[in-house]
Simulated assay, not measured.
Amino acid sequence: MPVVNMHEAKSSLSRLVEAVASGEEDEIVIARNGKPAAKLLPIEGSRKGGVRLGLAAGKYRSISLEEFNSTDDTIAAMFDGSEVEPSR
C-alpha cells in the first residue's frame, strides 16, 4: 500500500487511478503533512483484467509434440468421413 503526499497525488492523479483500477495496486493512501488523509480504492467489479492464466497448472500431464500430433490422421478422418485405424 503506497503512501503518496497530496502534491504528488494532485500532479499524478491519472496514473494513481490507473494503478488502482488495473489492480497494480490494491489501494493508495494519500497523506497530508505526512499523515494519512484519504484512501484511493477501486470500485468493486471495475478492475480491468483478462483471463487468469495458470489455473489448471499441474492438473494435466505434459505430452510431447509427437504425442500431440499423433492423432492428426484420426481427426482428419473424422472430418472427411473416411475410416482410419485408431492409433495406439
Rank of each mutant, 00 (worst) to 15 (best):
S22A: 09
V51A: 05
K59R: 04
N33T: 06
K10V: 11
A19L: 13
D73F: 06
F79P: 06
V3L: 05
L55A: 01
E8L: 10
S22M: 05
A38K: 05
I63M: 06
L55Y: 09
K39S: 01
G58E: 04
V20H: 05
R52T: 14
R52L: 12
V3Y: 03
G58V: 05
I30P: 01
R88Y: 15
I28V: 04
I28D: 02
N69R: 14
S70D: 02
A9D: 04
D72R: 15
S46V: 05
G23L: 02
G58H: 02
G45Y: 02
I43V: 06
G54Y: 01
P86K: 06
V29M: 02
D26R: 08
S14D: 07
G34S: 08
D73S: 11
S11T: 13
L41C: 08
S14A: 07
R32H: 03
F79A: 14
A37F: 11
D72I: 15
S62D: 02
V51D: 07
V17E: 05
A31Y: 00
M78R: 04
V17L: 10
F68G: 01
R32N: 00
T71P: 01
A77I: 04
L40S: 07
E85K: 15
S64F: 03
I63D: 00
I63V: 04
E8T: 01
I63K: 04
D73N: 02
G23P: 08
V84Q: 11
G23S: 12
A56S: 07
L16W: 07
F68D: 05
G81M: 10
P42I: 07
